[in-house]
Design a protein around this nucleic acid. Structure first.
Lengths: 194, 194
DNA sequence: TTTATTACTAAGCAAACGCTTAGTTTTTGT
DNA sequence: ACAAAAACTAAGCGTTTGCTTAGTAATAAA
């Protein structure tokens, strides 16, 4: 990452991709601020020195974690991208997302949404930008799918996309508290009117 | 609060109600964890000693802040309680809430929702209980209003209440990012299908 | 084998956290 | 005027935070 080799020396005893995936899981479970570098040490299984030499700082670890998260969730977003049946494809994304965020009987919500909720104002603009960028990608996919519906108008589609983002945002939060059956009911009602 | 007078002595130089309202504003703007006791000192205008002697600890200040928040928002919840026109009354609550949480051009969201988002698992059960209690109060008001609609069925009303809570949760979060016009559109669509 | 270079371990840094305490001032009853 | 009690100020407590650094082990080129 920040390495510049002139002559070869001792090799890294860990795989950066692997340890970032462990960090991602921890951030996802725990939130950004609540996750300390000591906890990252244990979870990633490497010393603090290694963390800082590979990723610069805690923020650097998190930025890489968001990338890893995107890669993990791409199986769902790609499915949405490929979908050809309008709002039904979006509804399927809602269900897929709940399955994706499941952890035992609990639900971790969305790493991106969780962190947006956590961040106050623009306390960390670099992270915030990456999060907002991810959200607008999802919104674009919603718009593309809504445009597949017969007789859809541009302005109406924009408003519906905002509405669906609002539902998904709510779902990401309430999925941590409510059980699957209630969430399913909520999803069904959410798609009745669009 | 924790005082037990035998003989009268020096009087408090501050009003507990007043300083709690200042603390409430700070927690609302800033979140629970991100608000330090030093910040509370400045905002409340009293020394740390006074904070701890009046409210026990930081958690104590926050619990009192939730009570103060409830009192502040009661003008809206009471309006919803008194409302007799079914789902229209609930929709009005959505609009009232946005106005209530407005701060300049920004929006602070809901103190309760913000803190639920912030709390991981059951890291603080005492606070969590008070938050969940507040949320279920709102849900009950939704149910009462939905039952005013002609031909409403119990099970259907329960599901609709969950759906509306999900919308409100989403709104509380997205109100911090999106502008008023988009939020209004989202509210209108949210009520099309119930 | 030597030497340069990198990765490791573990101790330690200043700053900030929630909270306490020593010491002083203000108020009241006698 | 005096003593008791509560509220004030400000310094400081132990712990944890993100991050650094001194010293050692491993590796590859010479």
């Amino acid at each position: 990452m920040y390495r510049r080799l002139v002559t070869m020396a001792r090799k890294k005893q860990y795989n950066e991709q692997e340890v970032i995936e462990k960090a991602t899981a921890l951030f996802w479970r725990n939130g950004y601020e609540a996750t300390t570098v000591r906890m990252l040490e244990k979870e990633m299984g490497i010393n603090q020195f290694s963390i800082y030499s590979s990723f610069g700082n805690k923020q650097g670890v998190f930025l890489e974690s968001i990338s890893a998260y995107k890669k993990q969730i791409s199986c769902i977003t790609n499915k949405l991208k490929a979908s050809k049946n309008g709002k039904e494809g979006i509804k399927q994304y809602f269900y897929d997302f709940l399955e994706f965020a499941k952890e035992g009987s609990k639900n971790k919500g969305c790493l991106v949404t969780n962190t947006v909720n956590e961040m106050k104002d623009v306390s960390d603009p670099i992270i915030m930008e990456k999060l907002v960028d991810f959200a607008s990608t999802i919104r674009q996919l919603f718009i593309a799918n809504l445009l597949q519906e017969e007789g859809s108008k541009e302005g109406e589609v924009q408003r519906k996309a905002n509405y669906l983002m609002n539902c998904l945002l709510g779902l990401s939060v309430s999925s941590k508290v409510y059980d699957q059956r209630k969430l399913n009911d909520t999803i069904e009602i959410s798609f009745l009117n669009i």
